[in-house]
Write a protein that binds this DNA or RNA. Structure first.
Lengths: 352, 352
DNA sequence: CGGACTTTTCAAATCGTTTTGGAAATGGTG
DNA sequence: CACCATTTCCAAAACGATTTGAAAAGTCCG
């Protein structure tokens, strides 16, 4: 193992100078820098990370803990995010240390990692409206960034989130503008922030529209095909006066269930029923591949990985918090699963 | 941050003694040990991992790299294994550092982690018959354990594997004993060791049986429901003389496809067609929950996590390699998806 | 009591970096 | 040439543990 000392001896320089030259400090002349860099390369010098970490007090490790299990089975999106994070963090010369909590104790891995001083910070995914992990990290004053948010109005932590209010609002407004008056919203679980915000957006759009004829129903549930199928089937089985002509869905997997229910009812999309879904572009489900292609609010999960990593690094470098709280807009992409409300078509025919 | 030095000063002891007392070395009297332990606890002393690592030269980190992507989509079983590994490694006071390779370069993450001296060893999953990662780690002489094996007869590395020859043999023998003579084996990819071994077992069972009337066909493919469906449908569409009366499957997900194909053909399990599958107990698919319950060779993936972690630790502690190469037997569990061959039933009737 | 062990403790070196506080070298100016 | 301000470099002190070699203390026995 070749060390800084060996380089310094070979060059008759002090270790300090070598260290400086290698780390790009300004107080070293150009020629000695080149000389040092060259011999370092020749000797195939690799700085000992542990020594570096001990000296700088930074471990260069980021903690990522498997979020509390949602009943059974893991969230596949988590792993999508994890791989994206790993890629970006690698570019920043940070490493990801992964832990899975034992069932029942969500913050034990955090406590462990903090106690061991093994990581410089954490990335928290799948936050709840009220989240023990966030509370713990705030309490301990450990740097962390959240993918999403919790319930607090003015979060005292760094986060990256999409504008879920707008997601709910835009989807709903699109449908209202198309003449739909009975809209059913199959939302996510009721204990997460994005569901809460989307619901707010949904209700605001209805309220803004003014027409008291417009009405909506919101359902909450675990994002799954069967949930979408079950709830959509129930809604479509209502008497015609109450039956929705359009669905808003919080995920493409739910939308797949809705689509199946519509088909089973012998109805067509978008002629009889419109669907607009949020689409975070999971690897296994392509909204464009739906038949008909799905109208969506589009915001790929993997696009969050880069920003999350960058935010955390900013945090570690002591940047100001207000630059590290980022909310991005989702993009409304109108495809073939939305069309004018059938009832409106009739009224149009009548008024024309 | 409370250090060993502070404890030593408070107790008027030397840091060496404190270190020894805390780490359970014998050359320290019982009373001072108790004393040290007590004050350490009172002061809420937590050893600085980085310092410890620098002094001992061991990082306490284990590298786990996402295996080369199988076309698109990630292998969900990998994450199952990863969480299991994390749990066991945590008990051994080791941490898992995760990396995702950028597409196309499978060993770059290994090279990086090795170069940085960031990990003490690796766990390699989803090995191929010929695997660049294994070659690299052998070359660099880095400790690692493989989940499965590569093509070499006498691997020069630690591994944990199941007896895949027996998996193929036992499943096939069961069907032969039930009178089946035309057996179709829907195996995994052809470039992995377990497929190779199971195929050997399959062929050996046929050969051992002797009856030249018995014949088998082996297919290779990516483990998926659609692969099972497609191949089973093709096989069942053959003229009766060549049509298999039984399937061997390399995974429950394939078996699900076979089952669907059988149904689509208007046939019944096990009356018309028998199925025996290998079952590594993925979280999302329960072989017992099949209708009919699946006859399987049973060996849960997650049961491999503990041994893998233990083997790696043994390796790091310099244990002998031959104790670190473990092959376990899978358990044959006969349930409702296997029954006597329909043609045999006829012959029985004739001979009786 | 004194020598020979054994047990217990300690001071100091080590791990491989970074960082601090000066000192030496350099260069420009009057 | 003396003087001062920059550059450029260095010796030594961290960082917080482990480990080595030796000294001090305790124990035993003749």
């Amino acid at each position: 193992m070749v060390t800084i000392k060996q380089i310094s001896e070979k060059l008759r320089l002090s270790p300090a100078t070598v260290s400086r030259a290698l780390n790009g400090y300004p107080e070293v002349s150009a020629k000695t820098r080149i000389l040092v860099e060259e011999t370092a390369r020749n000797l195939n010098y690799r700085p000992n990370q542990l020594a570096k970490k001990l000296a700088t007090g930074r471990s260069g490790m980021i903690g990522l803990v498997l979020p509390p299990s949602n009943d059974k089975g893991f969230d596949p999106t988590f792993f999508d995010v994890m791989t994206g994070l790993s890629r970006r963090l690698t570019e920043l010369d940070l490493d990801l240390v992964f832990h899975a909590p034992v069932f029942g104790d969500d913050i034990e891995p955090f406590r462990r990692l903090v106690g061991k001083q093994a990581v410089d910070g954490f990335i928290v995914t799948n936050p709840r409206l009220s989240d023990a992990r966030i509370d713990f990290l705030l309490e301990e004053d450990i740097p962390f960034v959240v993918h999403g948010r919790n319930a607090s109005e003015q979060p005292g932590f760094a986060y990256f989130d999409i504008d879920n209010f707008r997601v709910g609002y835009d989807a709903t407004k699109l449908l209202l503008d198309l003449g739909h008056r009975k809209i059913c919203f199959l939302n996510g679980p009721d204990d997460v922030h994005f569901s809460f915000e989307r619901k707010r957006g949904f209700e605001k759009a209805l309220a803004d529209h003014g027409s008291d004829a417009a009405s909506g129903a919101v359902r909450h549930g675990r994002m799954s095909e069967s949930y979408g199928y079950r709830e959509a089937l129930a809604a479509l089985s209502l008497p015609p006066a109450q039956r929705p002509t359009a669905f808003v869905s919080s995920s493409t997997i739910i939308a797949a269930g809705i689509l199946r229910a519509v088909r089973d009812k012998g109805l067509r999309v978008p002629d009889d029923v419109s669907i607009v879904s949020h689409d975070d572009a999971p690897p296994q489900l392509d909204a464009m591949g739906f038949d008909p292609a799905l109208t969506v609010t589009y915001s790929p999960l993997r696009d969050a990985c880069g920003p999350l990593a960058d935010i955390l690094q900013g945090l570690l470098n002591g940047e100001n918090l207000d630059k590290l709280q980022i909310t991005e807009e989702a993009e409304l992409i109108v495809r073939q699963s939305t069309g004018p409300s059938p009832s409106v078509d009739q009224s149009k025919g009548q008024t024309a």
